[in-house]
Nucleic acid binder design. Sequence first.
DNA 1: TCTAAGCAGTTGATACATCATCTACAGGAG
DNA 2: CTCCTGTAGATGATGTATCAACTGCTTAGA
Lengths: 155, 155
Amino acid sequence: MADTVRWLTPEEQRAWRGFVRLQERLGGRLGRLLQSESNVSPADFAVLVHLTDVPEGRQRYQDLARALEWEKSRMSHHIARMAGRGLVVREECAEDARGAFVVITDAGRAAIEAAAPRHVEAVRALFIDHVTPAELRVLTEISERVLRNLDEEAG
Amino acid sequence: MADTVRWLTPEEQRAWRGFVRLQERLGGRLGRLLQSESNVSPADFAVLVHLTDVPEGRQRYQDLARALEWEKSRMSHHIARMAGRGLVVREECAEDARGAFVVITDAGRAAIEAAAPRHVEAVRALFIDHVTPAELRVLTEISERVLRNLDEEAG
DNA sequence: TCTAAGCAGTTGATACATCATCTACAGGAG
DNA sequence: CTCCTGTAGATGATGTATCAACTGCTTAGA
């Protein structure tokens, strides 16, 4: 651990700190809006959005976890909480007795239908509307490149 | 709530999802590396970095909270945990009996000095090295513009 | 000087994420 | 059929974030 560390240059540091802070502040703000206006957490929102995109609003824990890139344990705990609030129900799986399905309820559909428009408006008002199309393309390009690298570079 | 919602275009959606996923994946990975290689959480890291940047490694809860943009409650809980592990100590304040200082310990300095180089290398390897200087400038520009707007647009 | 406003930090409750461990079942090799 | 390995998901412990009170101290203002 000699002095061979390539510390960040001032520009790199500024970019990195700005990016980190953006995540924290924007994510925090959007999350709080979601929670206070629609009474769902960002995690609830992700689950509900995904379930409305899937036949019969019904999917195996496993597949849901893969789609959201969550750990199975997180999924299990989170679905238990959401089921407690009536947004989804757990359903046994006939074909594989180990497995189970998560199914969105009417209350879950109502919640997501109420939350989504507000959330999208917030994403626009707080983010998209302040970024030009060209900048947005750069951002997409960066995100996808870095994500691709993360995928390769070990799980 | 009529059908006047301006949903995201496919490009916008791709950009937004990529950005959100980048946060989650990159943040998660860097956090886990920090934790497993250096035994400090990202939050610990932020506190320690800030304290090494300040005279005598010593600052009021309040000022620390402002600098990191944390709530005072979070600060209080977190410092209590860090103090439990010997990374910082709490110190009463003579001038204002309500207040208190957070002071970094030798163990805290040792921890951050061990963690920082690895963390910087990880930030480079997983992010900076995959982004061109021009892209980095765009990212900085976007971040700062959006953050500025968040500041104005209410607390 | 007394009081009311409000600031600094704490505390307890609740929700969330991760980890290690555990149970039950599935599917293949012998 | 009987193991044996692996998979699906559950569970409990720990650490973390947020919210809503709450305590004790300060300070401005009547």
